[in-house]
C-alpha cells in the first residue's frame, strides 16, 4: 500500500509508520521539520524488508492550511497513487496551561479542529479522485464526554470525531473509508510530563490496533481496547456524578 502520514515522526504515528514500513508498505511523511522528517524516513527505509525501503517526505504544517495542497501533491507525485492518508498530528496542552494562555487555546482549537478538518477535506479530494481509499485520523477519548481536565482539548477532539463519523456515513459507498482512532492515555513524548493513569498504553500496541482497523476498514476504534470499556462507563455516568469526580 501507499500511505501518506502527517505527524509520524513521533509517538503513536512513529510506531504505526514502522509497522507499515516493516511489512513493505510505502510511507510518505509529512511534517513541519525537514530534518526530523529526513531522520524518520531513514529509519523507515532501514526497516523495510530489503533494508532500502521507500524514502520520501515533504513539508506540511497543520497550523498553515496553505501547506496542505502542495504537500499532498508532492506525496502523490512521489508515490504514484495514494491508498491511505493517516493524520496523527495535533497539539496537546493541559487544561491549566490553556486556561492561562488564550492564544495557545486559540491555536490548539484551530489546529486540532478547523485545520485538521481542512486537511482531511484535501485528503478526501485526493483519495476520491482515484476512486477512493482510506482516511485514518487520530482523535481522542477526550472528545467523548465533557470532562473537567480536558474541557478545551476534549472539545477540539469532540468536533473532530463528529466530523469523521459523518464523513464515513457520507462517502463510504463512494469508496472512501474513514477511520476515527480514539486512543486513551498512551505513554509518548506528548504525555511524558503527565502522571500516567492506570491502563496507560504503549504506542506499539496502539499501532497494531490501528493497523488492523486500516486493513479491515473499521470506522471507529478505541485503543488500547480497555478504553472501550472505560468510556462505556464514563459515557453513562450521570451529570451529577461527572460534576463531582475529578476526571
Amino acid at each position: 500500500m501507499n500511505i501518506v502520514m502527517l505527524g509520524a515522526t513521533r509517538g503513536m504515528g512513529r510506531a504505526l509508520a514502522r509497522l507499515l514500513a516493516e511489512r513493505g508498505d510505502r510511507v510518505f511523511l509529512l511534517g513541519r521539520d525537514a530534518e526530523e522528517l529526513e531522520r524518520s524516513a531513514a529509519d523507515l527505509a532501514v526497516r523495510a524488508p530489503n533494508f532500502k525501503g521507500f524514502r520520501g517526505h515533504a513539508p506540511c504544517d497543520l497550523s498553515d492550511t496553505q501547506s496542505f495542497a502542495p504537500a499532498l501533491r508532492a506525496a502523490e507525485e512521489a508515490l504514484g497513487r495514494v491508498d491511505v492518508v493517516v493524520v496523527t498530528a495535533g497539539l496537546f496542552a493541559t487544561q491549566e496551561q490553556l486556561e492561562a494562555d488564550i492564544d495557545r487555546t486559540e491555536l490548539l482549537l484551530r489546529v486540532n479542529f478547523t485545520n485538521t478538518v481542512v486537511f482531511c477535506e484535501h485528503a478526501r479530494a485526493t483519495l476520491m479522485a482515484r476512486g477512493g481509499g482510506t482516511l485514518c485520523v487520530f482523535s481522542s477519548v477526550a472528545g467523548d464526554r465533557g470532562r473537567k481536565p480536558v474541557a478545551l482539548y476534549g472539545a477540539s477532539k469532540a468536533g473532530l470525531s463528529h466530523y469523521l463519523e459523518s464523513l464515513d456515513h457520507r462517502f463510504r459507498d463512494q469508496g472512501l473509508v474513514t477511520i476515527c482512532v480514539k486512543p486513551g492515555f498512551v505513554n509518548t513524548g506528548m504525555t511524558a510530563g503527565l502522571k500516567p493513569p492506570p491502563f496507560a498504553g504503549e504506542p506499539e500496541k496502539v499501532a497494531r490496533d490501528v493497523l488492523k482497523a486500516i486493513d479491515a476498514g473499521t470506522p471507529m476504534i478505541y485503543t488500547p481496547s480497555i478504553w472501550r470499556l472505560i468510556m462505556l462507563v464514563i459515557l453513562h455516568l450521570p451529570r451529577a456524578v461527572m460534576r463531582r469526580v475529578g476526571f
Partner: peptide, 9 residues
C-alpha cells in the same frame, strides 16, 4: 529512550 531511530544501515 524515545530517541530510537535507526539512521543508516
Amino acid at each position: 529512550r524515545l530517541a530510537d531511530r535507526v539512521l543508516d544501515f
